[in-house]
């Protein structure tokens, strides 16, 4: 049975409304796109929608109360909320260096780490 998914292309500000028809996992037709980027985007969104993910964690002994962190690779869209919950539990202590790994293999998956997005020195209060 043929089903259809609707997307809005993020390639440029025009934002073409895309329609992707598929039978199970098989893509039948992509329509609505004005250029190749639209077709590529619809395919990506259908097969594996990935997102950048960054948030903050609590830090003590630093100038600010929060340390910006990110997941070093794009993760599946459906995992964003789960990631937010896991990372939210984290408490770190200054000093922290840019790129320092704070959680290794965050989803139990090799190579997906949570890293610090900036250096934060220890502050003597």
């Amino acid at each position: 049975m043929t089903e259809a998914e609707q997307y809005i292309c993020i390639g440029c500000p025009i934002g073409c409304p895309l329609r992707l028809e598929h039978e199970g996992d098989k893509i039948i037709e992509i329509s609505g796109h004005d250029c190749d980027r639209g077709a590529k985007y619809a395919k990506q969104e259908f097969t594996e929608p990935r997102r950048d993910f960054s948030t903050t964690v609590a830090i003590s002994g630093a100038r600010w109360n929060r340390l910006p962190v990110k997941v070093n690779r794009q993760i599946h869209k459906d995992r964003v909320m789960e990631g937010a919950r896991i990372i939210h539990e984290l408490q770190v202590e200054a000093p922290v260096k840019l790129g320092q790994v704070l959680i290794k293999n965050v989803f139990g998956e090799e190579g997906i780490d949570v890293v610090a997005c900036r250096t934060m020195d220890r502050v003597i209060s």
Binding site: D52, S54, T55, P68, K70, C117, R118
Partner: peptide, 17 residues
């Protein structure tokens, strides 16, 4: 703290910090 910075200058997606 979101990413999307530096695509033109560093040719990679960076967060603001």
């Amino acid at each position: 703290i979101h990413s999307g910075f530096g695509l033109h200058y560093f040719k990679e997606q960076l967060t603001g910090p």
